[in-house]
Simulated assay, not measured.
Amino acid sequence: MTARTALVAAALLAVLAPAVANAQSASGPQGTWLTQAGDAKVRIKSCGAALCGTIVWLKQPIDPNTGKPQIDDKNPDPARASRPVIGLQIFGDMRPVSQGKWSGHIYNADDGKTYESSISHTGPTTLKVEGCVGALCGGEAWTLTGR
């Protein structure tokens, strides 16, 4: 390999390495997702070997009954019922179970309950989020709004 060839190879590697890294990270669900109802955005990021999801935006951030920021008032634990919904981590234990699918638990601030759950990256901008109680499962599609 000549010095010129080595220089060209090094330059190509410097240009292509970030693109490869971005393509690899784009295959996972990391990013900010809008719920199917359009009432919340959840930021998903890696937390060690698991995925974490945190509410970062609400369509209605102020409770119309109190005039104050929405709180986790459906939570049966009185110590947690006054925490703000924005910033609330709704899952932190999603672990990979197959290509493009993670399983764990998800907290639903609408009813204050935690459910067995899975998330599946079904396309570059879609995420299927499912929750189950026993054999009964329900799900919705979230839309990517930003990485």
Rank of each mutant, 00 (worst) to 15 (best):
T2M: 02
A6Q: 14
L7S: 12
V8S: 03
A11D: 04
A11P: 03
L12F: 11
L12T: 12
A14S: 09
A14E: 07
A14K: 06
V15Y: 10
L16W: 14
L16S: 14
L16Y: 13
V20S: 11
V20A: 15
V20N: 06
A21Q: 07
A23W: 14
A23C: 09
Q24E: 14
S25W: 11
G28R: 08
G28W: 04
P29S: 13
W33F: 09
W33P: 06
L34R: 15
L34C: 05
T35N: 13
T35P: 05
T35L: 12
A37C: 02
G38D: 04
K41S: 03
R43E: 11
K45S: 15
S46H: 14
G48D: 10
A49E: 12
A49K: 15
L51A: 06
C52I: 00
C52L: 05
G53K: 06
T54D: 03
T54M: 05
I55G: 01
V56R: 00
W57E: 04
W57D: 01
K59A: 10
Q60Y: 00
Q60M: 00
Q60S: 02
P61F: 03
I62T: 09
D63M: 03
P64L: 00
P64Y: 05
P64V: 02
N65Y: 04
T66W: 02
T66Q: 05
G67F: 03
G67M: 07
G67Q: 07
G67C: 06
K68A: 12
P69K: 08
P69T: 01
Q70E: 11
D72E: 03
D73N: 13
K74T: 15
P76L: 03
P76Q: 09
P76E: 04
P76T: 03
A79W: 00
R80L: 14
S82Y: 00
S82W: 00
P84L: 10
P84K: 13
P84Y: 01
P84R: 10
V85K: 02
I86H: 02
G87S: 04
G87D: 01
L88F: 12
L88G: 09
L88K: 10
L88H: 06
Q89G: 07
F91W: 06
D93P: 12
P96D: 07
S98I: 01
S98T: 11
K101H: 00
W102E: 11
S103H: 13
S103P: 06
I106D: 14
I106V: 06
D110V: 14
G112V: 07
K113M: 13
Y115C: 08
Y115P: 08
